[in-house]
Amino acid sequence: MEKRGVSQYYGFFITLAVCLGITAYAPSWGIKVFTVAFRNTLFMLGVIPPIFILVGLFDVWIPRERVIKRLGDASGWLGIMVAIALGAFAAGPLYAAFPVAEVLLKKGVSLRNVWVFLGAWSTMKIPMLLFEAQSLGARFALTRYAMSFVGVLVIAFLLERLISLEEQNEIRARFSL
C-alpha cells in the first residue's frame, strides 16, 4: 500500500512536465513560474523547520496515554474543546497543520477531534480573529467566528458519518506505530 522511492514523486514529475511544457511554449511565462516556485520554496523552507521540530519533540516527550485520555475516542465534549483550543491558539498556514495532525493521529487522538483541530486551525485562530475585527469590524469578524465554530463541529460530525469505519481505520492505521 505504502508508496516508496521514486514512485512517490510521480505527481511531482507530472506537474514539473506541465511547467516545462509552459516554458517551451511561452518562455517568459515559464521563467516566471520557476522564479515564483524558487521563491516559494525558500519561503516554505523558512516556515517549516520549527514546526517539524516541535512536532518531533511532542512525539517523543508527550506520553500517548495522556493524549488519548484528553483527546481520544472517549474524550467527549471536553476533548472537542481541547481540540478547538489547540487549533485556535496556533498560528501559521493550514499546510503547517497537517504534520501536527499526523502526530495527533499517532498519539491516538480520535479522527473526529483531528478534524475539529484542523477546522479550528483553518478558521478559528485567535490572532486572525483580532486582525479580522481590526480590518472588517467586530460585528463581521465575531459573526463569522461564531458561524465557523458551529461549522467546524458540524463538518467534523458529518465527516465521521460520511467516511466508512473501515476507511477511518485505514487512515488511522497508517499512523499508529
Binding site: Y9, G11, T15, L16, C19, V36, A37, N40, I53, V60
Partner: peptide
C-alpha cells in the same frame, strides 16, 4: 530521536509538498 522523527515527518510530506509548491506558483503567475 525527536529530531529524527521530525525529519521522517518531513520526508513523508515532501512528495505532495513539491507538487503543491509548483501548483501555487502556476496559480500566482
Amino acid at each position: 530521536q525527536a529530531l529524527r522523527r521530525a525529519y521522517r515527518s518531513f520526508l513523508f510530506i515532501l512528495p505532495p509538498f513539491a507538487v503543491v509548491i509548483l501548483l501555487i506558483s502556476l496559480l500566482l503567475v
